[in-house]
Design a protein around this nucleic acid. Structure first.
Lengths: 180, 180
DNA sequence: ATAACCATGTAAATGGTTACATGATTAG
DNA sequence: CTAATCATGTAACCATTTACATGGTTAT
């Protein structure tokens, strides 16, 4: 499963442009479990077009750049279903912020506080994003996934806020620079 | 930050072989916030060696293959601290299981149940892994990160178990195959 | 017997990120 | 006036994953 599959999935929710799909990843429905940038979305859309899995309509707008709106074809839907029937691979997580917190005794306290604070902000924003997704009338899968994201993000935000003193306490300040 | 930095971090906790470092990612201390396989660990270790950031001792064992134990150098520690002082990039998450749950109305109910069940197992195992990390006497950063992992994994496991009926209800069964 | 564990590595292929390139409009 | 938003795309670079290659030991 790659960006191509996710674009297909995005289009199964309705026609969209690459720009609009990007927003689903960065602050929309997909934000808490997958991500993709323009550099992978636009090429993916073009390959899907070549393979006949989507069609494209150019839409001219007033005072706005040209927009390419993609729609899924029947073959596209069949391909999406096939992709979704494979065995899922393991979750891939990678958090540089957590790595830095883990080794926080090796960094300066200013940087430590900065990282923690922006990580809290990041989770708070995440909670807002998910809460903005309206679940009413959605299929159960989408409601379920929204609820999961909310539960996880809230738990993280809560933990970070309630325990930040543990990370920020200065006790080990003197360790910094020891072995350099 | 890449596998090289993480290997350096692993070695800051004590000398280790590539095989042992791998275990820190798959079921150990790092398991819930970063991952790396042999294909990236072994090359990383070799590059660190070339760059003088680690040293290597070959250890012969009885009835066991040769083991290469790596140790961090002073330059290595300085490099690690420098890496940890950069701005962290955003968390990267990618969950194919959640994608499949999101689009669960497009897959068969047997597969749906399979995915959900193994996802629950995955989180339960994750909780066990984190609980097996002994936090006593550890620097605050490690305790903090362990607690965060525990909070998040427990929240996910709890949500999945308490709401699985929502995902498994058959109501939309008839949708499957509609548009293919 | 058979699977799992110990232990190391490489090469090719895959796929994503980053930087570049362009440019009008709107909100603060 | 400045930043953000709208909007698309490419090319080089980078990193990881996958498959391949090897082989003894221990637990079931």
């Amino acid at each position: 499963m790659d960006t191509k599959t996710l674009c297909l999935g995005a289009l199964s929710l309705g026609d969209a442009s690459g720009y609009e799909i990007k927003k689903m990843f960065e602050e929309g429905t997909f934000s808490h479990f997958y991500d993709a940038g323009y550099g992978s979305i636009y090429p993916a859309l073009n390959r899907l077009l070549t393979e006949g899995l989507v069609t494209c309509t150019e839409v001219e707008q007033e005072n706005r750049p040209l927009k390419k709106v993609y729609s899924m074809t029947g073959t596209g839907m069949a391909k999406l279903k096939a992709d979704l029937s494979e065995e899922p691979s393991r979750d891939k997580t990678r958090s540089e912020s957590i790595v830095m917190m883990f080794f926080s005794h090796l960094i300066g306290s200013a940087h430590r506080e900065e990282i923690l604070q922006s990580y809290i902000d990041y989770y708070r924003k995440g909670v807002d994003c998910i809460e903005n997704i309206d679940p009413t009338g959605q299929p159960f899968g989408r409601q379920f996934v929204r609820g999961l994201g909310l539960a996880v993000y809230k738990a993280a935000a809560k933990y970070l806020e309630e325990n930040k003193d543990l990370l920020l306490s200065d006790e080990e300040e003197r360790d910094i620079g020891d072995a350099a």
